[in-house]
């Protein structure tokens, strides 16, 4: 029996390994030149500050399993179903067959250009959370003019919970990511003023709330409840922001040396294409719809096609890996069933 997995991010890698261990043949397709997906862009992970690349290395290492064939730099151009088998045509000419198809196409980050009022791509010192991770990787935090920032603001919910961008959903991880990044920033910039502008702090995972408390007490991060309305730039290339402190109930104006946009999650373009090719339904939040929110979280409206990871909803890495293992189990059950 063989399973075709599309997407070799953390979900795809983990599911591939679990299925391979169970004796299934796995064809793992990845459009990029290397596996890892969005994990490649991260420096450290919450809540334990584990190195993202260390986790990535462990996941990739397990792809050397003899039952896994990895197709890098490949994209499906056609997906057919013949006599209960899936035939996936790749852009390099290969034709893969399998009894089950697992979609692990993941998410993509919200394109911050769409929120033009925050000035991303227009003001020099507006960056996204991913770019900040990149700064951490290079251990260089500086403004566009080459100075150490004295005041840094994190803007939560950019492209999440925002009717204007048609994204009603909560991306779940940006809150805790902002807390993590603020702490990392404090370690590099002990003197700087660091602020987070939030709507709600959604600390859903184990250890998250504790991190949030520590960020306030130990790391002196200031949390301001209020959404940013707009930003502009002054001659010194600082970002002037307008917001409202909704706890005090007063409008607020401030200059930031560096503004970090906590961009939300959306269904990736690749996942969207796969959904269109295979007829998988999308939920109202734009992610792929699972068959049942309790009992069939990896199944879809298409028999034999399964989902793993953040293509079905925003997930942190813990949940992504758990979901991948759950998908592997579900697929094994399914294969046993069609065997009979």
């Amino acid at each position: 029996m063989s399973v075709i997995i599309i997407g070799a991010g953390p979900a795809g890698c983990e599911a591939a390994y679990q299925l391979a261990q169970a004796g299934e043949k796995v064809e793992l397709i990845e459009q990029e030149a290397q596996p890892g997906g969005n994990l490649n862009n991260w420096y450290q992970l919450f809540p334990d500050r584990k190195s993202a690349q260390e986790l990535n290395r462990q996941l990739i290492l397990r792809l050397e399993h003899p039952n896994i064939r990895l197709h890098l730099g490949c994209m499906p151009t056609k997906i057919d179903r013949r006599e209960g088998r899936f035939e996936v045509q790749l852009n390099d000419g290969a034709l893969l067959t399998g009894q089950a198809l697992l979609i692990a196409g993941g998410f993509q980050l919200f394109n911050a250009h769409r929120k033009e009022e925050y000035g991303y791509g227009i003001y020099e010192n507006v960056i996204t959370s991913v770019e900040l991770e990149n700064f951490f990787t290079n251990q260089r935090i500086q403004t566009s003019t080459g100075q150490l920032p004295k005041r840094v603001g994190f803007i939560h919910c950019v492209g999440s919970r925002d009717e204007k961008t048609c994204n009603f959903h909560c991306s779940k991880l940006c809150c805790v990511t902002a807390v993590k990044q603020a702490i990392e920033l404090r370690e590099i910039l002990p003197e700087a003023e660091i602020l987070c502008f939030y709507m709600d702090m959604r600390m859903f995972g184990p250890g998250y709330e504790e991190m949030y408390r520590e960020a306030q007490e130990k790391y002196r991060i200031k949390f301001v409840r209020g959404r940013l309305s707009e930003a502009s730039e002054n001659k010194a290339k600082q970002v002037l922001i307008k917001a409202e402190d909704t706890l005090i109930g007063k409008p607020l104006k401030m200059t930031l040396d560096l503004m970090v946009l906590m961009v939300g999650m959306e269904l990736s373009a690749g996942s969207r294409q796969l959904a269109e090719m295979t007829g998988i339904e999308k939920a109202t939040n734009g992610f792929l719809r699972v068959k049942d929110p309790h009992f069939a979280t990896n199944e879809t409206n298409q028999k034999g096609i399964f989902l793993a990871g953040s293509c079905s909803s925003p997930m942190n890495l813990t949940d992504t890996l758990t979901d991948a293992r759950s998908a592997a189990l579900t697929i094994r059950e399914y294969l046993k069933h069609i065997d009979l």
Partner: peptide
């Protein structure tokens, strides 16, 4: 207009 700083610029 303030929502499209690119235009102001």
């Amino acid at each position: 207009g303030h929502l499209t700083p690119g235009v102001i610029r």
